[in-house]
């Protein structure tokens, strides 16, 4: 029986010396194979007496299990070491760049228009689009710009050849031109009792202006219009402040200044607290702490009437903003000409 203990000790000592998988296989053959001392000892069990045999058999089996367990342990240790070694040789330079992805992007103005439209959509304003080429009647006259009125000076127009002399054709100077179309379309549904309106009118507008880093011959605009029986200047302030807080940030402050647009009365410009400096003054807000964002006002009674809404009964507010300006402020873009130049080095930043 001492023999079995010796076999076990010698075998484990030999296993300790094993350094690689080949030596481990040799060890297995030597210690657990057909000619191994343990195998021989187990074969010899038959020669023992019937009293001795069960104990000796049990002991021999224990030694065998111990050696097999030791073998398994050694094998996984060697495998682990081998894996570690091979992994360490597979080390990558993680600072090499990733693969280029051809991402398709939307134009920054599309992105801004979508944000604006989405915010107003959640307030019940639907998108209404109208044409780029308009008549003087829709672009000016019905919006309370009489002929030769000083307010027309503020908007130099591109005229189209061949229009009627008393109602020239022109490229719309503001998306407000769509206001009358929309009101008339809504009013036509029930002229005696026209339905309320809540729309935004995005679109391309044109002005006869020299192109510079601050002005373009074409620009997008989003006009908004709400008409109903109980629409107030307070609603204008609330709606546009809600918009500003969604578009810029939840805590941004707004300021309304009296202004003048022929198609609104009273009129107001909305400023928001500069979101770059938080109102403490910086180059973006020209050290004023405020940024001009949009023009607005209560729809002029003449405009309501021209749209088919009785101004004695209905009221409304309208506003207009420039997506280019919103985009320029948001991303500190210095030159408005970038938008229509479409240099990929500009577009792929958004």
């Amino acid at each position: 029986m001492e023999n079995l203990q010796t076999i076990r000790e010698q075998a484990l000592a030999a296993l300790n010396a094993v350094q690689d998988e080949a030596a481990l296989e040799q060890w297995k053959v030597a210690q657990l194979g057909r000619n191994a001392a343990l195998t021989q000892a187990m074969k010899n069990l038959g020669q023992l007496s019937a009293e001795e045999r069960p104990l000796a058999g049990k002991q021999a089996n224990e030694v065998k299990l111990a050696l097999e367990a030791a073998f398994d342990e050694k094998r996984s240790a060697l495998e682990g070491a081998r894996l570690r070694e091979s992994l360490s040789s597979e080390k990558l330079d993680v600072t090499l760049p990733g693969h280029s992805i051809a991402l398709g992007r939307l134009h920054p103005i599309t992105q801004t228009l979508r944000r604006v439209n989405a915010i107003f959509a959640q307030m019940g304003f639907q998108v209404y689009r109208s044409r780029d080429v308009e008549t003087d009647e829709y672009n000016f006259l019905l919006l309370n710009f009489p002929p030769n009125h000083p307010a027309r000076e503020m908007q130099d127009s591109f005229y189209v050849e061949g229009g009627a002399p008393d109602n020239p054709t022109l490229l719309r100077t503001h998306t407000s031109a769509g206001q009358i179309h929309a009101m008339r379309e809504y009013a036509a549904k029930d002229p005696g009792n026209p339905p309320p309106i809540r729309i935004v009118l995005p679109g391309m507008c044109y002005r006869f202006e020299q192109v510079s880093s601050r002005s373009e011959v074409q620009f997008t605009q989003v006009e908004g219009l709400a008409v109903g029986e109980n629409i107030t200047f307070g609603d204008l302030k609330g709606t546009l402040t809600d918009f500003a807080q969604r578009f810029f940030n939840a805590n941004v402050r707004t300021r309304f200044r009296a202004s003048h647009f022929p198609f609104t009365e009273p009129s107001a410009e909305m400023d928001v607290e500069c979101f770059v400096c938080g109102g403490s003054g910086c180059s973006v807000c020209k050290h004023s702490g405020w940024l001009e964002i949009l023009g607005s006002g209560m729809v002029h009674p003449n405009v309501l009437r021209n749209g088919g809404y009785d101004p004695e009964k209905y009221s409304g507010f309208a506003f207009g903003m420039g997506p280019e300006r919103l985009t320029m402020l948001r991303y500190r873009i210095e030159d408005i000409r970038y938008f229509w130049r479409n240099d990929m080095r500009f577009l792929e930043q958004f």
């Binding site: 019940g124 309320p196 309106i197 709400a226 109903g228 029986e229 109980n230 629409i231 609603d235 709606t239």
Partner: peptide
Amino acid sequence: PATRIADALP
């Protein structure tokens, strides 16, 4: 005061 539109939704 700034208010939210109380008029009917179109």
